[in-house]
């Protein structure tokens, strides 16, 4: 069996005395699409944010292709240098619930920013690349607009283009459609599905269970401070084995018709 692209080993996180999760192990192989589900407050977003060190895990490590780029010392501090963390974050792209576009830059500027500032690419080349990424998410004509002029769905697609521009090996999606008007959810899910079809590796925290079922190769259900149940979408979503997963799915399906 080949080396996992991403390995989480014994990852743990508390906020003060409040334990979020501990001992989380997860291997992600190239091409895996992992959907993380769980109740509100179960720590699924925190888990995702620990992977690229936006949250500092208390314990455990994150390896990419066997290289540990993030190591916690067990006391809430990282043993990694800023260089390691920047390297990690360039290889792991992230898309946020609230988009977090840079409002003082144009759409193309947002997408080109990492290439210019982090990669040192010339601004002309970076804008060319940004244009290509914008076309990929269907926003080729919006490069010169400022984010304030876009709809929520467009903003999120720009955020996806911004992450893609850095050529990440893994994409993290943190509830990418939760802040959207229901009518705009489809366009964003469409882009994510297209990336899935290209065989990209991704980890997706979502409440869109139907989407997770169709797109994910594996579902991870988070509860009781850790990974509670995991398996194929068929196993976890259609035939959940454990009570909290069953309860969660029942609650979600209550008002379906």
């Amino acid at each position: 069996m080949s080396e996992p692209l991403l390995r989480l080993g014994g990852l743990g996180k508390s906020f003060g005395t409040n334990l979020v999760f501990s001992g989380v192990d997860l291997d992600v192989m190239p091409g895996d699409r992992i959907a993380i589900l769980g109740a509100s407050g179960s720590g699924k977003s925190t888990l995702l944010r620990c992977i690229n060190a936006l949250e500092t895990p208390d314990e455990g490590l994150v390896k990419i292709n066997g290289t540990p780029l993030l190591k916690a010392d067990g006391k809430g501090r990282l043993r990694s240098t800023e260089r390691d963390l920047c390297a990690l974050r360039q290889r792991v792209g992230m898309v946020f619930q609230q988009f977090n576009l840079f409002p003082h830059m144009t759409v193309a500027g947002n997408v080109a920013e990492g290439l210019v500032t982090v990669r040192g690419m010339s601004s002309g080349k970076a804008l060319e690349r940004a244009q290509a990424e914008l076309e990929r998410v269907g926003l080729g004509d919006k490069g010169d607009a400022y984010p304030s002029r876009l709809s929520g769905g467009q903003k999120q697609r720009v955020a996806i283009a911004r992450a893609l521009a850095m050529d990440p090996e893994i994409l993290l999606f943190d509830e990418p459609t939760s802040a959207l008007d229901p009518a705009l959810v489809g366009e964003v899910l469409g882009v994510i599905e297209q990336l899935a079809n290209e065989g990209r590796t991704m980890i997706l925290v979502t409440h869109e269970i139907g989407f997770a079922y169709h797109v994910a190769t594996r579902v991870v259900f988070v509860a009781e401070h850790g990974i509670y149940e995991t398996g194929t979408p068929e196993e976890v979503l259609k035939h959940p084995a454990r009570p909290l997963t069953q309860q969660f799915l029942a609650d979600h399906q209550r008002f379906q018709f």
Partner: peptide
């Protein structure tokens, strides 16, 4: 400035100093 701005900049690999200066 919203924490999300720092996070978005850090998430594309910018250092703290770059985030401050550019974002």
């Amino acid at each position: 400035i919203e924490p999300g701005q720092w996070e978005a900049a850090r998430a594309i690999g910018m250092t703290g100093a770059q985030t401050l200066r550019r974002i």
